[in-house]
Amino acid sequence: MSPRPADVEVGTELPEQISRVTRADLVRYAGASGDFNVIHWNERVAREVGLPGVIAHGMLTAGLAVRAVTAWAGDPGAVVEYQVRFSRPVVVPDDDLGAELTVRGRVAALLEDGRVRVDLTVISGGEKVLSLARAVVALG
């Protein structure tokens, strides 16, 4: 059941979402998005350019994070604005577990016309990987 504007106030928390990202997920996202930058699949090149290892596409992290919003809103078409700032890479180890992403969201502002702003906190390896992640959602 989608939240209605009247049900929502500043501070309303979204259900926490935990995702896992494996190397296989990076390959799948590379193909789907067309972003074949080698740092997302080649350990040797990633280390040569000074990274700790293969890292996730920033837009994969952003795309997974906004699912917490679309699942809560009940309609992916309700997201009218989405903005992220990348602060730390998500390092994806070469194992079956991959990296864990924890996404928490809270309503930060009530806007006009039944719109609300949701601010997300996205954590991997104990660190915030997005220094800013916010969505404007049209409810109801």
Partner: peptide
């Protein structure tokens, strides 16, 4: 080059 920020404004889906 690294990706610093990204923003989407949807006029419709």
């Amino acid at each position: 080059v690294v990706h610093g920020e990204q923003r989407f404004t949807h006029h419709r889906p």
